[in-house]
Design a binder for these strands. Structure first.
Lengths: 125, 125
DNA sequence: CATCTAGATTGATGTTCGTCGATGTAGTTA
DNA sequence: TAACTACATCGACGAACATCAATCTAGATG
């Protein structure tokens, strides 16, 4: 089975007409991607920050503050994890640009970065 | 430093007025989350499917087909990975509900599930 | 100065993940 | 039937991750 058999098969099996498409483009083994390697790595890193239940709940808690800031001292209770673990997860959220960190005196305050979430939403649209 | 000192400190340091807010709500150590544990686990699983550069490029390639289907046989070249690795990643995308799988004859065809991506977008908004 | 406190960092441990060669399986071809 | 093909699964390996006790650091307090 050669290249054009492959094309014909795809047409028959997909049960669609391809008259308006270039028969070469329809089966080209290499197609130019929307995402290049570098973009994919950056985006994957952002989504990885969201790929943990604890971080999602921490983020949700901060988001629920409605633009106000949330004290780090409350987050251990919210997440049910130890202080070092919460600190670790918050660092990941801050590094991903999803949350801003501000230390004032002994306490650390976090607030959402809505533009960063908007950017991720745009990627999914 | 007691509970109310904590409140006063937060007010002073945040340099914001809190007249319109309940002083107890402002510093409540436990606040009801938007996401409960179960929701967070489910969502984290979906985002984890997007948290890999290879999977993002595979998804992007399928999305670039504009609603049409893409043959699995093209994806090894697109991703630059071995056939078992691609199969592994596509299973994760299918299990996450982001992609539909259809085997016809010897070939497997994938297509995007836009509603699933929309659902994730809604979570970020 | 010494003491106390909130949070970051370190180090160690068990788990999960990405990867691919080898093999299995369903479907096609001759 | 036997040979071939496209994809899935298995098994193993190294890398990355989540977790927390112990420790460090910066800032406040006395």
């Amino acid at each position: 089975m050669d290249f054009f058999d492959h094309c014909r098969y795809s047409v028959a099996m997909a049960n669609r007409t391809l008259q308006t498409l270039d028969p070469i483009a329809c089966c080209a083994p290499v197609r130019s991607d929307v995402l290049d390697e570098a973009q994919a790595v950056l985006l994957a890193n952002s989504f990885a920050a969201l790929a943990d239940p604890i971080r999602l709940r921490l983020l949700s808690h901060i988001a629920a503050a409605g633009g106000a800031e949330v004290c780090a001292c409350d987050l251990t209770v919210v997440s049910g994890r130890s202080q070092p673990t919460v600190s670790h997860h918050m660092k990941i959220l801050v590094d991903a640009g999803l949350v801003d960190r501000d230390k004032r005196g002994l306490w650390v305050w976090y607030r959402l970065v809505p533009s960063r979430l908007d950017a991720l939403r745009a990627v999914l649209g």
